[in-house]
Amino acid sequence: MKRFAIVVGSAVLGLSALPACGGGDDTPAAAPSNTSSQAAPASSDAKLATADVGDFGKIVVDGTGRTLYVSDKDTADPSKSNCDGDCAAKWPPVVAGSGTPQLDGVDASLVGTVTRTDGTKQVTLAGLPLYLFASDSNAGEAKGQAVGGVWWVVGADGKKITTQASGSGDGGY
């Protein structure tokens, strides 16, 4: 009986420690689209600004200065995102959050949202859904430019910029 009590007591202690380990919030599939370094936090509003990046001139960036992209596989009229699953892990959508995006240098009349297949609201510019590139880890990087011949940095006017970046790959999606 004493052995049974020790086993049960150990199991209870072990299970009670699990919530302290982070719960279910750090599942790999959800992390790219929900982490603040990858996309706008769901609990706050998205931020769009402009910055001079590389040879692209003034482009649209998020609140932390990370480059934003559009995809040729999406549509602007009507707005539709065609990047889900593995694609969204590599190209996290810019999530709208709970209110109106904060803008700095971006025309408010060009900014909108589209409902994704998972029900989240994604920020659009001139109708096209906006994304981050998971491999851009710092402000001012534009490693996603021309990837797969379909991903492009976007100007403040909402138009894709097709200038090829030096060293552009065709690494997918």
Score class of each variant (00 low, 15 high):
Gly158Ile: 07
Ser37His: 08
Gly172Glu: 00
Pro92Arg: 04
Ser135Val: 11
Thr35Asn: 12
Lys159Pro: 11
Ser44Gln: 15
Thr120Ala: 13
Ala76Asn: 02
Ala17Asn: 01
Ala5Val: 13
Gly119Ile: 09
Val8Ile: 15
Val7Trp: 12
Ser71Cys: 09
Leu125Asn: 06
Asp25Pro: 01
Tyr173His: 11
Val150Gly: 06
Val147Phe: 01
Ala165Leu: 07
Gln122Lys: 12
Leu132Ser: 15
Phe4Asn: 05
Lys160Asn: 00
Gly144Met: 04
Asp84Arg: 07
Asp45Leu: 01
Ser135Phe: 12
Val8Glu: 03
Leu103Ser: 03
Asp84Met: 09
Asp104Lys: 15
Gly85Cys: 05
Leu132Met: 07
Lys143Gln: 13
Gly97Lys: 07
Leu103Arg: 07
Lys2Ile: 08
Gly169Arg: 10
Ala46Lys: 03
Gln38Asp: 14
Val106His: 06
Leu125Ile: 10
Ala49Ile: 01
Thr117Asn: 10
Ala126Pro: 00
Leu132Cys: 08
Ala126Glu: 00
Trp152Val: 04
Val95Asn: 11
Thr117Asp: 14
Gly119Ala: 07
Lys143Arg: 13
Gln102Gly: 12
Asp74Glu: 04
Tyr173Thr: 06
Gly63Cys: 09
Thr75Phe: 07
Cys21Asn: 13
Ala76Tyr: 02
Ala17Trp: 15
Leu48Ile: 03
Ala126Asn: 13
Val94Met: 08
Asp25Thr: 11
Leu13His: 05
Asp52Asn: 15
Pro32Leu: 08
Ala30Lys: 13
Asp136Arg: 12
Asp77Ala: 14
Gly22Trp: 06
Val61Trp: 07
Gly149Asn: 03
Leu15Pro: 09
Gly54Tyr: 02
Lys159Met: 10
Pro41Thr: 02
Ala146Pro: 00
Ser79Thr: 01
Thr124Asp: 14
Lys143Ser: 09
Ser166Tyr: 01
Phe56Val: 03
Leu48Gln: 03
Gln122Trp: 06
Glu141Val: 04
Gly169His: 12
Gln164Gly: 02
Pro19Met: 14
Ser71Arg: 02
Thr67Asn: 10
Pro28Val: 04
Asp74Pro: 14
Val114Gln: 10
Ala17Thr: 15
Arg66Thr: 06
Asp157Ile: 05
Val53Asn: 11
Gly9Met: 10
Gly119Val: 04
Val111Met: 04
Gly158Ala: 01
Leu130Ser: 03
Ala40Gly: 15
Ser43Met: 02
Lys73Ala: 14
Ala11Val: 15
Asp72Ile: 00
Ser79Val: 04
Ser43His: 10
Ser33Tyr: 02
Gly14Gln: 00
Ala139Tyr: 12
Tyr69Leu: 07
Asp84Trp: 06
Ala96Cys: 06
Val150Asp: 10
Ala142Gly: 07
Ser98Cys: 01
Gly85Leu: 07
Gly23Pro: 09
Gly63Phe: 00
Asp62Val: 04
Thr35Asp: 10
Val154Leu: 05
Gly105Met: 01
Trp91Met: 01
Gly158Met: 06
Ala139Lys: 15
Ser135Pro: 04
Ala5Pro: 00
Asp72Gln: 11
Ala5Asp: 12
Leu128Asp: 11
Thr64Ala: 15
Gly97His: 03
Asp157Thr: 05
Asp107Tyr: 03
Pro78Ser: 01
Gly127Ile: 05
Ala31Asn: 07
Trp91Glu: 06
Asp52Gly: 14
Gly119Leu: 05
Thr75Pro: 12
Lys80Gln: 14
Val106Ile: 00
Leu130Glu: 08
Gly97Cys: 00
Gly9His: 05
Leu68His: 08
Val7Phe: 13
Ala89Met: 14
